[in-house]
Amino acid sequence: MPDVISAQHPAGQKPSPARMFSVGLARAFGGAIIFSLPLFMTMEMWHLGSYMERGRLAGLLILMIPVLVGLSHYCGFEPTFEWQDDVVDAFVAYAVAFLAGAVVLSLFGELRSGMPWEEIVGKLALQVVPGSVGALLAEGQLGTRDEHAEEEKERCTYSGALFLMLVGALFLALNVAPTEEMILISYKMSAAQGIALACLSLASMHAFVYAVEFRGQSHIPEGTPHWSLLFRYTIPGYAIALLASLYLLWTFGRVDGTGPMHVAMVTVVLGFPAAIGAAAARLMI
């Protein structure tokens, strides 16, 4: 244990890079499990993993690469300075999440010997998506960092803010998107309730945007009028949340052959957690 402590202690004896990396890996493994636990225990994830369209699953995994690289840039296993390091970190996160998924799903009896390998790969690949985000964030959440100052500056740029909103939206939406309940809720709602939910999502997002400004984490100068924040942060943020929701629903085959009214409705339903995730990401990550 003293070794682990010294890994976090810049004042103490400097630990070897290999030691730091293995501590980072252990944290990443924990992060992968924490972030994907709800989805490990969601029936639809197992089913989707075995039957969802392979091309769309591959598309989701490929899309996650730039997302993870970007996320690593803001907070990863190691303080990174070069984009090559971010790419390596992203793939390490993928590998850790793959391993975590294999361990947990085997324990749950969801992966058995004798299963067709397409099914095994499909189930694992789908679980890797939330797990890899958890693996990358683990250091940001659990560990301590010395290199904060520069990153704080970077994540406060406009594109950094939009990127973090995308990650938050994808992550929280992904936690509920596979479930049958999204579809069911959208059928139970009237169009008027859908409009009200969209307004609630926008209002909650705006409260978060305002809170970020209030905490002084953003580069927005004091006294910026509300409508300007609304137009430049809240509305693009909600648009990102809606597009991320629609993308996930399409990936899971939830909107195929469905009329525009229900596509809009289920997008707004999933857009609610996505909006909260998008707005909260800037406060928490």
Partner: peptide, 27 residues
């Protein structure tokens, strides 16, 4: 404020309004 931020805002408004627009039309 850079012009690109207003542009992103405008595109975002279009996306949000198209989703809400479908629901309003339905209502």
């Amino acid at each position: 404020i850079p012009r690109v931020e207003w542009l992103v805002g405008a595109v975002g408004l279009m996306v949000v309004m198209s989703a809400i627009g479908v629901l309003i039309y339905e209502e």
